Amino acid sequence: MVWTLPEPMLAEPVNNPALPPGFAAEPKWDGYRALLARYADGRVVIRSRRGTDMTAAFPEITRAAASLPAGVEFAMDGELIVWEGGRVAFERLQGRLNRTAAGAAGMAAQWPAHYVAFDLLRLNGTDPDLAAQPYTARRAALEELFTDQALAPPWTLCPSTTDPATAAEWLEWSAVGMEGLVLKNLRGTYRPATRA
């Protein structure tokens, strides 16, 4: 059976950004939300939150995923961002989707994107999928994948904390291009097309 990317789990705004007990906080980046799959045969798919195929628009990310060792299979949820001058530069992402392959390669060379991974939905044919596991198990598996594969730029592991003081400090990161916080239930599963 061929496995396909699920619909993304969506964030929902809240009035109080304080981190409640039993939740983790992650920075919300100003970029393109993207699900990324790397199949065992080396094929890579990058899909937007709305289902648009973005694989050709981000050749640097596609190459990085394809270059991992044979047999490594995973699906991640994350954000495509571009850093410029010490901050996230959303404007450098704009226009990527409407470029020819040569145009996308040129933009990638000038303003390379990073993939900030914040969730792991599948790893090496896990059955059941990791999406059915609680956030704590998915996060541990994501951190292990970064360690085991020595993932370095363009890969970035999204910070995560259960410390309310750290989460509150992250709210001050707007100058670097963070839009707020995403709060995740430590026991919550990944529920496609539903709110976090």
Rank of each mutant, 00 (worst) to 15 (best):
P21T: 15
M54E: 05
T100S: 11
A65R: 08
A89V: 07
W111C: 05
I61P: 04
D53V: 09
L123S: 04
P17T: 04
R38E: 00
P20H: 03
A105V: 10
W29D: 01
E79R: 05
G78Y: 10
E79M: 11
A102G: 08
A105F: 03
A18V: 03
S48R: 09
S48P: 03
A113V: 12
P112H: 05
Y32R: 08
G42I: 12
P59M: 04
L120R: 11
P20S: 05
D30K: 08
F90P: 04
G85L: 02
A18P: 00
D30R: 02
A65Y: 10
R38P: 00
W29K: 01
A57L: 08
T52W: 14
E60S: 08
P13K: 09
G86A: 04
A34S: 13
A66P: 03
P17L: 00
V72W: 12
S67V: 00
T100H: 00
Q94G: 10
R96Q: 00
V45C: 14
A11C: 13
A24K: 01
R47Y: 06
L121R: 11
A11I: 13
G106M: 07
L10H: 08
R47G: 06
W83S: 03
I46D: 00
A101R: 14
G42D: 13
A24D: 03
Y115G: 07
K28M: 02
D119S: 08
E26D: 04
G42R: 14
T52C: 03
S48A: 10
G85D: 02
W111T: 11
I81T: 12
I46L: 15
V88Y: 05
V14R: 00
Y115A: 08
R43V: 14
A34V: 13
A75C: 12
F90G: 11
Q94Y: 14
F90M: 03
D53S: 11
W29L: 12
E60I: 07
P17G: 01
T62W: 13
